[in-house]
């Protein structure tokens, strides 16, 4: 998985509304990418719901959060509505999983992304990354805040 200090590979993916979102366009702010295996699998549901509860606090700290999975933009739209979350979801759909692969979090055996968090600084370099030891283990929101606090203290 991609290590802190490495420049994040650029990407351009469609969000749930079919709009292109590129890493280039997010420069200048802190970005957290939430890689997860699939839309509509019960564990992801809780993960994004819990992150949604702290989204306001993340925004207040100048952080934008994006979910990333191999699902299509249409699936993302339906998933977002079902969960009732506003976290934008990016479709790593074609070529399938290319962005997850570039970040070193693609699970070749399962054909989906692993559950991972990557924080990218305003200069486009990775400042923190975390890969869940198993798809069933959901990284708590505390990890994101700890990483932010550590950076603020540094």
């Amino acid at each position: 998985m991609i290590e802190p200090g490495t420049p994040a590979p650029d990407f351009s993916l469609r969000n749930q509304d079919g709009e292109e979102v590129s890493l280039e366009s997010l420069r200048g702010g802190t970005v957290v990418l939430v890689f997860y295996p699939l839309d509509f699998s019960p564990v992801c549901t809780d993960q994004l719901n819990v992150y949604q509860e702290v989204l306001g606090e993340l925004h207040a700290r100048g952080v934008e959060m994006y979910g990333v999975s191999v699902d299509s933009a249409y699936s993302h739209k339906a998933f977002q509505e079902k969960l009732g979350v506003s976290i934008p979801l990016l479709a790593d759909f074609h070529p399938k999983g290319a962005v997850a692969r570039a970040f070193g979090v693609y699970d070749e055996e399962r054909g989906v992304s692993a559950r991972a968090l990557v924080m990218i600084g305003p200069d486009g370099a990775v400042v923190w990354s975390y890969r869940s030891p198993s798809p069933l283990e959901i990284p708590g929101a505390n990890l994101i805040f700890d990483a932010l606090d550590e950076r603020a203290a540094a």
Binding site: V54, I138, P139, G140, A141, N142, L143, F145
Partner: peptide, 12 residues
């Protein structure tokens, strides 16, 4: 309570 849960890593 909610914050203490987040801090403890509660996700479900």
């Amino acid at each position: 309570d909610f914050r203490s849960g987040l801090r403890a890593g509660v996700v479900t």
